[in-house]
Nucleic acid binder design. Structure first.
Lengths: 348, 348
DNA sequence: TGGATGAACGCAAACGTTTGCGGTAGAGTC
DNA sequence: GACTCTACCGCAAACGTTTGCGTTCATCCA
């Protein structure tokens, strides 16, 4: 069945040189004459020689492989990051071993150990549920980059960016959202997030801060806890009752899900309430109505991660933190000018 | 910076036994007494020993790793397959190295060579643009499973299933679609696919066949070539003109995209025309209107792929082909009973 | 002609595992 | 007490690379 794969020795024999020469020839080492280089290369091709990365990484003490951990590739935004990451890695000659763990500490730990076992050159993790320190410890000495955000205790806690974190500029994004909303006449703003993670909190706080800056806006929160308990449906009915002018969502998925529930609840978007998302996933532009959202070029995020990791490896230092620019893209869910309902009520 | 990783020798020294014993102890070899086994295990834990898969796969002549090639993880249906595949692989102790190539022969070849270099135990490829024979040759002797469909020459050609192919039962799916459509009164049916690939052709043929079986239905085709040329927009206007009762799409993404274009073109779904998708991606159930589609449990597809690959490895035979069951899920885009417009016209 | 110089290449160790085979010690048998 | 037997463990080869250092041989200069 398997006639043994062809190795360096096979090529060496056929070329009547030593394995050392073959190795050097294939890697373009100038010690080897042009003549033998091309001859060896031709023979290697003839024999369909494929190098054994296991052997190579054994002696090199590290493999040209990145580890990439994502909680859920099924989420379009994560899929985009994965795509960008994978492409850039491939261009730089790296493989990527993927691991998607559904927010479970146990499997996540296993995944990290798996990365360590593979002696990956570096790893990027998005949406970890483990403390940042533990992740680093499990992976040590491989450099780690946290995409999206570092881990944040569910209780809230310290949101400062640590070294080695790459994420979209949520703060600026929310500022743009608020500016847009206020300019179009929306006043009472709600926030709904799908579950209680780090990014959810960061974005909420960013929204609150941006609203506070602009003074005049009222703020209605729908905490994530409620959502975790009963899904988006109860939130939809609460919105029908409390009637915010606009609700900005943690991400597009949440926004789209919410719009569906609102439709079931008989609340019209955007005439009854405006909706804003975050991420600009592909479906945001073809939803009905089309979703206003903050675009964050997720594939660039993946690409930049690789670049960051690469320069970290070369320069032997810890990865530096960085913020990715975002831009608001206005579509149909936030038309203007908007006349707040409660003001209209008072007038009539 | 990196204080050398701990190896078997370190553990052996600390435990005052040989590396052989440590290796056997950690793998639970009964040759080693219970006492030493647990002692070695404890010490390994203490030292935070992580096995080096490179060394292991070097001597074992194969790594516990699967290669998974997908054209585009950004496509929800592919993402689901990847997820299922990855989870099942992890449960069986395998890692998966991912590669998504955007329908490009060159990068695809590179990816396959990468798999070969990693001496993967087996690989699953979905949506290859390379001839099946070439893929197998590049990966030989690793077993290959084609998910979704094997490669089919764009010209059409032989659609017979070869060995080692796992795909949804498109034929049965289309039968269910046609039954549903006819039962609800739809007669003139159109098909639109996003691009001209193998699965696109398979599903079109399946649809045509199912319609032919039921005799009474008329069929209007929109070939993929037109779509490739100008996107979905021209198709939308053609639909506005030719007025089919229903259009069934190659997949949900196409369906959703088309619905967006139809909306732009002023065609109402489903009152003017019904729409049917294929795959049942998450967004199909929250689109507006919600999409009737054929559900294919894509994550199961990924899981089953792993099972198939695994049994192939164990039994040393070629992977067997298999069809995954599908079920129609009726939502809002195909209400009934439907009165064909052209019949109404004749009546009035 | 002798020695130095440098280009081109070979030797062999090392990377961290796994595993067949051989070894040792203690217990049991006669 | 000599023998076998079993349970437990160690030795060492092998997997396919890479690379520091040594070797060879032709060339060049004095």
């Amino acid at each position: 069945m398997s006639p043994r794969r062809v190795t360096l020795v096979d090529v060496a024999k056929r070329a009547a040189v030593s394995v050392a020469t073959v190795s050097r020839a294939l890697s373009g080492n100038p010690q080897i004459s042009e003549a033998t280089q091309s001859r060896v290369r031709r023979i290697a091709d003839d024999l369909k020689y494929v190098p054994n990365v296991a052997a190579r990484s054994l002696v090199l003490q590290s493999s040209a492989t990145f580890g990439l951990m994502t909680p859920d590739v099924t989420d379009p935004i994560h899929a985009q990051v994965v795509t960008g990451f994978q492409q850039q890695a491939a261009e730089q000659g790296y493989s990527v071993i993927l691991s998607n763990r559904f927010w479970d500490p146990g499997t996540e730990r296993r995944a990290l150990r798996e990365f360590a076992a593979h002696r990956v050159a570096a790893v990027a993790v998005m949406g970890s549920v483990l403390p940042q320190a533990e992740v680093k410890r499990l992976l040590s000495p491989s450099p780690v980059l946290f995409i999206g955000s570092e881990h944040v205790p569910a209780s809230g806690g310290d949101l400062d960016m640590a070294r080695g974190c790459l994420r979209p500029d949520d703060r600026d994004g929310m500022r743009q959202v608020v500016d847009h909303l206020i300019e179009r006449g929306y006043r009472r703003v709600a926030y709904v997030s799908g579950s209680s993670g780090a990014t959810q909190i960061i974005r909420r706080d960013a929204l609150v801060a941006a609203l506070a800056d602009r003074g005049r806006a009222e703020f209605v929160v729908h905490t994530a806890d409620e959502v975790d308990a009963g899904g988006l449906r109860p939130i939809a009915v609460r919105i029908r009752q409390s009637r915010p002018d606009a609700v900005v969502c943690y991400d597009d998925k949440t926004a789209l899900l919410l719009m569906d529930e609102l439709r079931s609840a008989g609340v019209m978007v955007p005439s009854d309430v405006a909706v804003v998302g975050f991420d600009d996933i592909p479906f945001a532009r073809i939803s009905n109505p089309r979703l206003t959202t903050v675009s964050q070029r997720a594939d660039d995020l993946g690409r930049t991660s690789v670049d960051l990791l690469l320069s970290t490896i070369e320069r032997g230092r810890l990865p530096v933190s960085q913020l990715m620019p975002v831009t608001l893209v206005v579509r149909e869910t936030t038309p203007g000018p908007f006349k707040p309902a409660h003001k209209k009520d008072r007038r009539s």
